[in-house]
Design a protein around this nucleic acid. Sequence first.
DNA 1: TCTGGGGTCCTAGGACCC
DNA 2: TCTGGGGTCCTAGGACCC
Length: 345
Amino acid sequence: MTWWVVHVDLDQFLAAVEVLRRPELAGKPVVVGGDGDPGKRGVVSTASYEARAFGVHSGQPLRTARNRCPDCVFLPVDAPAYNAVSAEVMAVLRETGRPVEVLGWDEAFLGVDTEDPESFARGLIADVRAATRLDSSAGIGENKLQAKIATGFGKPAGVFRLTSGNWYDLLGDRPPDAIWGIGAKTTAKLAALGITTVRQLAGADPDRLAAEFGPVTGPWLVLLGRGRGEREVDPTPYVPRSHGREITFQQNLADWGEVRSRVAATARQVAAEISERIVARVVVKIRYAPFVTVTHGVSFSGASSEAAFEAAALAALEMFEPDGPGRPVRLLGVRAEFAGEAHHP
DNA sequence: TCTGGGGTCCTAGGACCC
DNA sequence: TCTGGGGTCCTAGGACCC
């Protein structure tokens, strides 16, 4: 028997959930993002395939999406609805009895010992569809990295196997950001070193990249280029390391007193949401116009009452005082970092 | 493309200690 | 006084992901 990692990813998840409960939207270009008003500040969370045909995609400002697709149907993000459907999907995956590692609302890894991972993957897709009427795709790999990237080749509603055997055929000539974990910044930095393809990254000297990216990240990038990754699927329940809230204002805040009262209110909300956890640190984030972000935090111990948490957030806000007041504030956030339970013993 | 909101993990630099 | 060399902890920022 051979150990395989299978990655399952629902197709256009948020849009698909919306179409399920509003069948009249089937076949229409649907965009889910922000509070559903494409005239406001916000970005696209998910665009249906019909909307993508207009050039609308995740992460795009809603106003841009509206310009590209004035006739798209714009809907607000309804997190409770997606949580509920996500739980159904994960329950279906767990019924296989295999380890399931949840990655987000609409993705999971499974580990399976089999000689026919395609049959297993097709079975998963069929089971998810039978239970939820949602389409998904699956990727098969020797590790999580390969499986995750394979799914992209399988979409929509397909299955694809990516292994060390076909890794370079499929990815060797692609830029480094084709790899999960490598983004635009790293790709640009690599290009400055003369590394513009996955094949070149795979052949790069780990010590040279260590000098550029740090002792852990440098060698890790080379391993990514070679398609190496974690093979173990971890089914233990997810324990958040932090919890926070942030708000982008429709109009920048100019009044520091207003900033202070919004920080206090947000802090109380966050405190109410984390009742049981032990908070080690409270961090306040301010994004000034135009898009300059600063954070300050304070250590936290003792009773995590809402009042104490609010006081800690306001103390962190005091650290902005030298240059904070007077600058227009675009976004504010408050985050609680939980006391760690020693990551790996 | 005037750039959300929820997170995670890594790095660099300073403080501090011996 | 022209000035060590580690180690560890804390903090802010950066990069990335969905």
